[in-house]
């Protein structure tokens, strides 16, 4: 099977389109998912903590 120009254009206009839309939705859902807000907030603030030692459990 040879890859023709038309085939590539069809592929990018169908699969490529939905792949990018799907990906955007997944990323948005992840970023705005209510249960994720707490870990995000913790992560954003945790780097300001000045305890300069690794955790040893």
């Amino acid at each position: 099977m040879t890859i023709t120009h038309d085939l590539l254009v069809w592929f990018s206009k169908s699969f490529g389109l939905f792949y990018l839309i799907g990906l955007s939705l997944i990323v948005l859902a992840y970023a705005y998912w209510p249960a994720n807000q707490k870990p995000f907030e913790h992560a954003a603030n945790a780097i300001l903590d000045d305890d300069d030692k690794p955790y040893r459990g």
Binding site: V27, L28, Y30, A31, Y32, F40, E41, A43, A44, N45, I47, L48
Partner: peptide, 17 residues
């Protein structure tokens, strides 16, 4: 930048997006 400014990133969500 957040470390030096002493403030967390304005929007963590936006940094992910």
């Amino acid at each position: 930048m957040p470390k030096r400014a002493g403030r967390p990133i304005y929007s963590y969500r936006m940094s992910i997006i």
